[in-house]
């Protein structure tokens, strides 16, 4: 069995967001890049499953659609423990374009389980994983918070508004993962970092096709009005303000 984990290269979550080019582009200056937190957890879970599988899971691969800038996070994914990687060498234009590129690159790869995160922390598209399934015409399960494997049987727990469901699925399939999938992301150790240098990271040319959407520009939220302070001995006034001024209670 083979698992593929989709990796999105995103700015560190504490990055101060700024724009350049007349607010037409994100300012990459000085930005620290990381593996999208969901993808890091997905990779962690994939490795846990592999280790517990007694050899049934032979390989964990990672894939990204991105320019050379995405190389460091791919090396990090290999250092964490992925066996090999693929980079589709093109700009990640939009979800449709990225999913199409991934589907093209892996359609003959024989992957049984494809993992993607519920959203990228940069453009919050919440789409790529589900779209890959659609391009490949394979089943998918969304908002997955648990993946268990026992004797080749895979069981998935998914979150719905108002509850959870335990699912089974035919292979191959895509799981779009969220909170709960793994507790803490795995951190690469020295040995992992050394080994990552020798692991294969294939660079493939993009397939023909185009994005369906594009960014016209960005805005920062309006500055918030200053917080109105109420004295701690006057809680009643706060409640009155919420009632008469903010009109929320």
């Amino acid at each position: 069995m083979k698992i593929l984990v989709c990796i999105s290269n995103v700015p560190d979550t504490t990055t101060k967001i700024r724009f350049v080019d007349d607010n037409k582009a994100f300012d990459k200056n000085g930005v620290q890049w990381i593996i999208n937190p969901w993808d890091e957890l997905a990779l962690t879970r994939a490795l846990e499953l592999k280790e517990a599988s007694g050899g049934a899971i032979e390989k964990i691969s990672v894939i990204t659609v991105g320019t050379k800038d995405a190389e460091p996070v791919m090396r990090k994914a290999l250092a964490i423990g992925a066996d090999d990687g693929i980079r589709v060498d093109t700009e990640a234009k939009d979800a449709y374009y990225v999913a199409m590129q991934i589907a093209e690159a892996i359609k003959d790869g024989g992957y049984d389980m494809i993992l993607a995160g519920i959203e990228s922390s940069d453009y919050n598209g919440s789409a790529v994983g589900r779209m890959i399934a659609e391009f490949l015409e394979i089943p998918s399960v969304s908002s997955v918070s648990k993946i268990e494997m026992e004797g080749g049987n895979i069981s998935l727990k998914r979150e719905i508004d108002g509850g959870t469901e335990v699912m089974e699925t035919e292979l191959p399939f895509v799981a779009i993962v969220q909170k709960g999938i793994a507790l803490e992301p795995r951190i690469p150790n020295m040995r992992g970092i050394m080994m990552a240098r020798k692991k294969p990271l294939a660079v493939v040319a993009p397939a023909d096709g185009d994005a369906l959407t594009e960014f016209a520009g960005f805005e920062l939220p309006e500055a918030k009005a200053a917080c109105k302070m109420v004295d701690e001995d006057n809680v009643k006034e706060l409640v009155n303000l919420l009632h008469t001024e903010a009109k929320v209670i």
Partner: peptide, 16 residues
């Protein structure tokens, strides 16, 4: 739409 987990907004053009 909101981007960067609510830290900014983007204006997105749909071409299709």
């Amino acid at each position: 739409k909101a981007v960067f987990t609510g830290k900014a907004f983007a204006n997105v053009v749909v071409k299709s």
